[in-house]
Design a binder for these strands. Structure first.
Ligand SMILES: [Mn+2]
Ligand SMILES: [Mn+2]
Ligand SMILES: [Mn+2]
Ligand SMILES: [Mn+2]
Lengths: 218, 218
DNA sequence: AAAACAAATTAGGCTAGTCTAAATTATTTT
DNA sequence: AAAATAATTTAGACTAGCCTAATTTGTTTT
């Protein structure tokens, strides 16, 4: 009756695709996110549909049911709490936590989840700026937009990053960009849309359009 | 290349049978400990033998190789560190930790294990009095014997318990017996070998032969 | 509307880990 | 030493989750 690790990973993938701007969680997007073959996804989506955790059909893709949504949010909550734990108590850096949190998120113990939350002081955001659902599943609403869509010359704050890969996070470290840092767009280079950005009123750096698109600011 | 959760559980079972007084880790004992069918055990022992984690034959049962021993100890270390974490940081009681630790012990991250150890202050014993192997795999040696084999009228100390089930631990709680408590055997009742024990110089309780046998003292 | 392309599904197969029932091997008891 | 009993292994089967290759369905392009 409890969900398997694999089922939890599928629900989480559907959740993140659906809340990440895409209009439909398609077979292909899910396959890509989980690194499995589309044929495997067909099997699992059918199974989750039978279990009433999603509604699935070719036209609309996969949509979480109430119960499926609840389960997905629960896993996301655990993932983000564990990431916070790893950084604030275990001396991990923000680029080291993802892999381990992928394992820890599947530990089944409501008591542990709630005690962990308490132990950490009921954090609202994880080390990547992602909101942490509370015990009832409520998510803090965050106002933010990708850096390339923000106003020029206005003082902005780094709210979160949408790519948690070690490669990207290490790159940000090297550029000197961290969560909650303030920055100002000085200029958008015409031919490649790269950004010239002033950091914390100090140094200036260039960011490619791709890199900047993964930084959310407000 | 890393071991599966199942493989780790088999190695741990063999370890605990071998170091728990039994002369041979037999198919049957392993099956019993893991709650699986002996036919399944045959399959897995053959697989572990092929992977050179154990030496197995009918006559001698399963014996951990150097590598198998190393892996088993590593899992035991994680299990006991997580149990300690749950009790000392997450407000779990000693009868609540086992099940969750069974899951946590399979998390793969040497960095996490070592940081956890540091965070807890390099504990030497878990909440059940079991010794925690250090990072190199070394186990503190503990001198102890089952309560029924100890001297009468001598001041003894509860060192550990060999049954981690909720039922047994709750029973000890109710009797008022905890780790490191001092006690004295006042009398061994002849016909059923039950023990009359004085706790912390205060109250006296009767313990059945079975219950007393699961309490190790020094 | 036909052809071409893309997305999803079907068909068949694989591995890990489990099971039951039957057969074999080893150990006791008579 | 034979018979009875206990422990282990074999044989065959099942589920979860994955794969490749082939086919079907749906969407664009011409
Ligand atoms: Mn995961
Ligand atoms: Mn995160
Ligand atoms: Mn386990
Ligand atoms: Mn323990």
């Amino acid at each position: 009756m409890p969900l398997s690790t694999t089922e939890e990973n599928y629900l989480k993938a559907i959740f993140s695709i659906s809340t990440g701007g895409e209009s439909r969680a398609t077979n292909q997007l899910i396959a890509e996110k989980l690194g499995v073959n589309p044929a495997s996804v067909t099997d699992m989506l059918r199974k989750l549909d039978e279990k009433r955790l999603i509604d699935y059909n070719r036209a609309d893709g996969a949509k979480l049911t109430k119960e499926g949504f609840k389960q997905a949010v629960k896993t996301v909550r655990k993932h983000r709490l564990w990431e916070t734990f790893l950084v604030s108590k275990m001396n991990f850096t923000w680029d080291e936590v993802h892999e381990v949190a992928e394992q820890l998120e599947h530990i089944q113990s409501d008591k542990l989840t709630d005690e962990l939350d308490k132990f950490l002081g009921h954090p609202k955001f994880d080390p990547h700026g992602d909101p942490i659902p509370d015990a009832s599943g409520k998510l803090p609403v965050v106002k933010s937009k990708p850096l390339p869509e923000a106003d020029i010359a206005r003082k902005l704050k780094v709210v979160s990053v949408t790519d948690n890969s070690t490669a990207f996070l290490k790159y940000l470290d090297k550029q000197g960009i961290g969560l909650n840092d303030s920055l100002v767009i000085k200029e958008i280079v015409d031919f490649d849309k790269s950004l010239l950005v002033e950091l914390k009123g100090k140094k200036e750096v260039f960011l490619s359009k791709e890199a900047a698109g993964k930084i959310l600011v407000d």
